[in-house]
Computed example of a mutant assay.
Amino acid sequence: MFDAVVYIGHGSRREEGNTQFKRFIASVMEEVDVPNQEIAFLELTNPTIAETLEKLITQGAKRFLIVPVLLFSALHHKLDIPEEIAAVQKEYPFISFKMTAPFGTYPYMVDLAVKRIQAENHEPDTAILLVGRGSSHIEPIQGLQQIGRKIEQRLDIPVYTAFLKLGKPSMEEALAFLPYRYKKVYVMPYLLFTGLLLEKIEQMVFSSKDTFAICQNLEFDPLMKKTLIKRMEEARDGEDVSGHKEPEQRKGSDYPRWGNSSA
């Protein structure tokens, strides 16, 4: 069905964050049986989406699977990426694209957040604070809240959500009221990679370290790899994973070999 895959990361001013992304995508590429696979970034670093698409087009690619490596669907997923793709398609009208859903509230993402929290949470009378970037779109706000509710059900621990930029409550507001309710609060940065936002969370937690402790952020875990491959399967097959037979696993791998065999 597809003869090229383009994985799109946000991009970071910190090279460490870009390196984490590239390392993660390299591990995904090993499980995807498509001849041409490349990365691109939305901003702050290269290659751009247009540069990567044009490179693949000159190599003969015509049918593209676009994989935005994003937590939730907001401005980048709804507008920025489609606009850039449309500009390329206007110049090369013979090519076609299909785009995957973001990580969203897929069950593996809940598993990953639980994993990060359980690695740190060892005290009674505690609560969890999930901190996301925030957005002017409702989906990322509701998505993080939904993940928080599922974590609360799994761990039987109070879970709150807060946001660094757009969204209520802000992290500052949450840090102000939670100490009156709990002896200890574990802050879980719901962020993909290291960068300025993670540093901001760490600084705010450090200044109140008697009450707050910080969990590791998502950090491109293998559970994210499984989620991304599932999202790619959904785009390939045009149906929910819940009704999809698991593809044959490659020998020696924990992940299904993703390819075009059923196309």
Rank of each mutant, 00 (worst) to 15 (best):
D3E: 09
G9D: 03
Q20Y: 01
F21R: 03
F24T: 03
A26L: 08
M29T: 07
V34P: 02
P35D: 13
N36P: 03
I39S: 06
F41R: 10
L42E: 05
T45Y: 00
T45A: 02
T48N: 01
E51H: 02
T52C: 00
I57M: 06
T58W: 04
Q59I: 13
G60T: 08
L65Q: 10
L65C: 05
L70I: 00
H76Q: 04
H77C: 04
L79N: 03
L79E: 08
A86N: 12
A87R: 15
Q89A: 14
P93I: 05
F103K: 11
G104A: 01
Y108K: 15
Y108L: 15
I117T: 09
E120V: 06
N121M: 13
L129P: 02
V131M: 10
G143C: 07
L144W: 05
Q146P: 01
G148T: 10
E152Y: 02
Q153P: 01
D156C: 03
F163Y: 14
L164R: 05
L166G: 00
P179W: 04
V185S: 07
Y190T: 14
L192S: 06
L198D: 13
S207I: 05
D210E: 15
I214Y: 03
N217F: 14
M224V: 11
T227E: 10
L228A: 10
K230I: 14
E233R: 15
E234I: 15
D240G: 12
G243Q: 11
H244K: 13
K245E: 11
S253C: 05
